[in-house]
Amino acid sequence: MPVDVIYKTKATANGGGRDGAARSDDGSVDVKLVVPKEMGGPGGVGANPEKLFAAGYSACFLGAMRAVSSKVGVKVPAEATVTAEIGFGPRSEGGYGITADLTIDLPGVDRAEAEKLIAAAHEVCPYSNATRNNVNVGLTLA
């Protein structure tokens, strides 16, 4: 499906991939990568692709809610949060896969209105579109 690209960015990983570093071309993202103990690594201080995906998805989904709020007539409160929990593990078909569960907190917003906003955001969010029909994404209203 073609995309009319309006923004591009680059990041480069080095070292062992999951055990090395990653840096954006402008230096605004510069992270040490560490394999978690659960995945056979040393653990410790550092990021991994799943943490980076969780940060990106949660920020993008919050932005998507703000983008569609006027269209669906539901105001996003300033205190709204989105927490993304990303899971990693082997797939029955082989290789590895991820899971994604988003918990959305919209303080003071009526439940039916919040669900309408979340559904609309899930349709336009680039991360939701990238994962659709490939990753099981759970959406929970806190």
Rank of each mutant, 00 (worst) to 15 (best):
P2E: 13
V3W: 07
V5E: 08
I6L: 12
I6E: 12
I6S: 12
K8N: 14
T9R: 10
T9L: 13
T12G: 00
T12Q: 01
A13M: 02
N14I: 11
N14T: 15
N14S: 15
G17Y: 09
G17N: 07
R18T: 01
D19Q: 15
D19E: 15
G20T: 13
G20F: 14
A22Q: 04
R23H: 09
R23G: 04
S24W: 05
S24R: 05
D25P: 04
D26W: 09
G27A: 15
S28A: 09
P36D: 07
K37Y: 11
K37T: 13
K37V: 15
E38R: 08
E38C: 07
M39P: 00
P42Q: 13
P42M: 11
G43S: 13
G44Q: 13
V45P: 10
G46M: 10
A47C: 15
E50Y: 10
E50N: 08
K51P: 01
K51T: 02
L52Q: 03
F53K: 05
F53G: 05
F53R: 05
A54E: 04
G56W: 14
Y57K: 11
F61S: 12
F61I: 10
G63V: 07
G63S: 05
K71E: 15
V72E: 02
G73P: 01
V74A: 00
V74F: 00
K75A: 13
K75Q: 07
V76Y: 03
V76N: 02
A78W: 00
E79C: 00
E79L: 00
T81E: 15
T83D: 10
E85A: 08
G87A: 09
G87S: 12
G87I: 05
F88A: 11
F88P: 04
G89F: 12
P90W: 01
G95Y: 12
Y96Q: 06
G97T: 11
G97A: 12
T99L: 09
A100K: 09
D101M: 06
L102P: 10
T103L: 15
I104N: 08
L106C: 10
P107V: 11
G108Q: 11
V109T: 13
V109A: 10
A112H: 01
A112T: 03
A114Q: 04
E115V: 01
E115Y: 01
E115I: 00
K116P: 03
I118K: 03
A121G: 04
H122R: 08
P126W: 06
P126S: 10
Y127C: 10
S128I: 08
S128A: 10
A130G: 08
A130M: 00
A130N: 00
T131K: 10
N133F: 08
N133P: 00
N134I: 06
V135R: 07
N136V: 09
V137D: 09
V137W: 04
L139H: 08
L141N: 12
L141S: 11
A142Y: 02
A142C: 02
